[in-house]
Design a protein around this nucleic acid. Structure first.
Length: 437
RNA sequence: GGGUCGGUGCCCGAGUGGCCAAAGGGAGCGGACUGUAAAUCCGCCGGUUACGCCUACGUAGGUUCGAAUCCUACCCGGCCCA
């Protein structure tokens, strides 16, 4: 039962309107009732993530930010790690059967995502403190008979078969296993359990979760006769209609530094299209909706300054990786993209050594006649001496931001901090030379 | 198994004895322009101890002053017949 105490406290009555203005609302259950409920007092709301990978990506970020928006508005967020559901695999949006995760993989994935679930929300010191849950807590101990009685009895197979995710798989050649078919029951059961034990009245998720979430709403109503709420946001799609979440180089935009460095994360957002800026600022930042049009207009007045991208990239990087990492990502970016190399700290060069193709070269080759060609080959900047000669002849090589002449040489005075030197081939390719003794 | 056509540089594709490191196109790269965008234009696009030499036209031999081009065998692919 939802406890009456949870309805005390003040909430920001503008939350739902803000989400709508940000285009973060795809579907909701009974919109009028939801709006009233959200204004009436704190609501406990949950968002679940299955540990199918060792980290989270941009798609999950919207979920976490949404929980944070709810918390900032005075509501109580429950981030849920799907330790149980993750074992089964959600068929939504999948064309083929998932591989079941073994215990080790599951534990490893959980270890990666739990810190992220904790990172964005306040867990202490506030009335509406967040609480981290894992659905194994109430799923593992449930017997098959209990499950069939308490969950299965309330749901018809007709209803389950009608879900898009199931229909698609039943039409396909490989079918769908009973295990994955059951996934939606587990998720519905989660919602019902949280409703009964945590006073959780609302679930949020991506629009691909609508089927599973609404089944949970139905289960709550059938089991308790009470009303639960659901809200989904549109999937984050790029202009070309594919799911968002890859860098320009094709890497997944993970939220942990081990898998995608803060510098690359920052760059991923620096490189978004002008056309996408407004949408991304609305979805992924806490900039007030009223300010965003101004920000975008300001950006479009001088698009080459990339003000919009800078704001998006720095706010998101700071949120995910913290202020220090953001500042070094910004400094590293200024080195790589045209800024001067002279004022750069040693620590930034050291960081760049992890981001750029870096060659460790022998100091003894410095100051020798025509050493540039062979150094470019040794440093893997070019594949052959012929190519080196060609590049130099075509004015394609610059050292520390300065174009070099074909017969130029690399000398000790070109090193920064007595060991680093930045080599650019053309405009896009940047290499770091590190001279050791 | 028989016949037939074919295997060329990152990809497609011309080239049937010297003028072939091999046309043309695509991709890629550099330059100009530019916003860490797109388009456009110009240039480059086997290696090297650079007007020479080496390596390369399925593989291995052979003919010839000279072979991607002719001959032989083999390997692989398409098509037709059994």
């Amino acid at each position: 039962m939802a406890t009456t105490e949870s309805k005390t406290g003040t909430v920001d009555p503008g939350l739902l309107d803000d989400l709508v203005a940000r285009n973060l609302v795809q579907d909701t259950t009974d919109r009028g009732a939801l709006a009233e409920r959200l204004k009436a007092g704190p609501v406990t709301v949950y968002y679940g993530v299955d540990p199918t990978a060792p980290s989270l990506h941009v798609g999950n970020l919207i979920g976490l930010l949404t929980l944070k928006r709810f918390q900032m508005a005075g509501h109580r967020p429950l981030p849920l790690a799907g330790g149980a559901t993750g074992m089964i695999g959600d068929p939504s949006g999948r064309s083929s059967e998932r591989n079941l995760l073994d215990d080790d993989a599951l534990a490893g994935n959980l270890a990666g995502i739990v810190p992220l679930l904790q990172q964005f929300l306040d867990f202490d010191g506030v009335d509406n403190a967040a609480k981290l849950l894992d659905n194994r807590a109430w799923t593992v101990s449930t017997s098959v008979l209990e499950f069939l009685r308490d969950v299965g009895k309330h749901v018809t197979v007709n209803q389950m078969v009608a879900k898009e995710s199931v229909k698609a798989r039943m039409a396909g050649e490989d079918g769908i296993s009973f295990t994955e078919f059951s996934y939606m029951l587990l998720q519905a059961n989660d919602f019902a359990w949280l409703f009964e034990n945590e006073g959780c009245e609302m679930q949020v998720g991506g629009s691909d979760q609508w089927g599973n979430i609404s089944l949970g709403v139905d289960l709550v109503r059938r089991r308790t006769g009470e009303k639960a709420f659901a809200l989904t946001w549109p999937l984050l799609l790029q202009k070309d209609g594919t799911k968002y979440g890859k860098t320009a180089g094709g890497e997944t935009i993970w939220l942990t530094a081990d898998l995608l460095s803060p510098y690359r994360f920052y760059q991923a957002w620096m490189q978004v299209d002008d056309d996408e800026l407004r949408k991304l600022l609305l979805w992924l930042t806490f900039q007030p909706v009223g300010d965003i049009d101004g920000i975008v207009a300001d950006h479009m007045a001088a698009p080459h300054e990339r003000k919009g991208q800078r704001l998006l990239a720095s706010e998101l990087t700071e949120l995910v990786h913290g202020l220090d990492a953001t500042n070094s990502a910004i400094e590293a970016s200024s080195v790589v993209f045209g800024g001067s190399v002279d004022e750069i700290q040693q620590s930034t060069f050291e960081m760049l050594a992890n981001e750029l193709p870096t060659a460790t070269l022998d100091r003894s080759q410095l100051d020798q006649q025509n050493n540039l060609g062979s150094l470019l080959v040794k440093g893997d900047v070019v594949a052959s001496k012929s190519e080196a000669a060609r590049m130099l002849k075509q004015n394609g090589i610059s050292i520390n931001g300065q174009k070099v002449a074909p017969d130029g040489l690399l000398s000790r005075s070109d090193l920064r901090h007595d060991r680093f030197c930045l080599v650019r081939k053309g405009k896009k390719q940047v290499y770091l030379f590190h001279f050791a003794d």
